[in-house]
Design a protein around this nucleic acid. Structure first.
Lengths: 182, 182
DNA sequence: GAAGATTGAAGGGTCAATCTTA
DNA sequence: TAAGATTGACCCTTCAATCTTC
């Protein structure tokens, strides 16, 4: 979980963050499943559609609103369509495109799910933090987010002091260790 | 429009956290893939094994160290075994059990991956935070983690005003629930 | 029966390839 | 060619069922 180049404090914080990163979404998922029978990704999609008049969006717009990749969105919409939460329709203006339509079942589901979800977020996160802690937590998230975005698209330095800088093929020793990963 | 469930500040922080929650692990995964050809879950398993003399652990111990469920660990070990990163052996003392063994390929992989991973964690997280911010971030993570653990197993109050199993239409009150939660 | 562990199925996420239309 | 969108393959995670051994 940790390398040799983090301080003891940093290691502890890092381990805690890894746990939060895993457990918090899992808990939100459980809560949504238990009552309204929605997954967190389903909830996020439905929120976006329900906020728009007519409950319709082009996949591209939906993807931008969620900051999701096209492929992920498409896969998710296929599953949600199977469940009857959304539907797909041809797009009037553009022959290439489609329109995602919120069904009545989808609208019912999101309207039933929203209050309890917000309550859970407050209970697990914000009710636990003092005003100063909330503020500090927000600043930390914003700072990390900025780092993620800055290091995101550019030359994308693979970074790190170890081997890969040269772009050479991996030495024979490694061959066995890195084939099957996507 | 701001919902009545989270304040505007809380909504902003929550959206940022959701992004960090998604982007940070993805970036760590990318970095591990690019060089050492490991996934983040693989890395975590290898770290645990490499820290133990002999590079061997019972699955139960490994699961406790990682705080993973048995099933998840077993599935992960099956894939890693296929890749030659670990191996499985019968347990001497207990006929039911097995032992997970770090292979030479696995040791090579983790030793090569660790420095770059630590650098990435520092670069994306800790280099971005002042001492006070780090401290506050750590306290916030710890507090949230505590909330997650406390609300974990017990009666698990489904919490919240939702929870309609009856399939009724929603009460008028709930209609305007906050939709801005990402 | 309980504990250690594995497996099958299903939802979720990502990458690469593909198809159609602008 | 580029943009909108989908699909197939594979990895990750969880749940329920199962199998063996204590």
């Amino acid at each position: 979980m940790t390398g040799q180049w983090l301080t003891a404090d940093q290691q502890r914080i890092w381990r805690d963050w890894l746990q939060v990163d895993r457990l918090l979404p899992a808990r939100l998922n459980q809560q949504l499943q238990a009552g309204p029978g929605l997954s967190l990704p389903e909830y996020e999609v439905l929120v976006q559609l329900s906020e728009v008049p007519g409950g319709q969006l082009r996949p591209v717009q939906l993807g931008q609103a969620l900051d999701w990749e096209q492929s992920r969105l498409s896969q998710q919409l296929t599953r949600m369509r199977r469940r009857g939460l959304v539907d797909r329709a041809d797009c009037a203006g553009d022959g290439r495109g489609t329109v995602v339509v919120l069904t009545q079942a989808g609208r019912t589901a999101i309207e039933r799910a929203a209050p309890g979800h917000a309550v859970t977020v407050r209970r697990l996160v914000f009710d636990r933090l003092s005003a100063e802690q909330t503020e500090a937590f927000g600043r930390a998230c914003a700072a990390i987010l900025q780092a993620l975005r800055e290091s995101g698209e550019p030359g994308d330095p693979p970074d790190g002091p170890q081997g890969r800088r040269t772009g050479q093929p991996i030495p024979a020793d490694d061959r066995q260790a890195d084939r099957t990963l996507r």
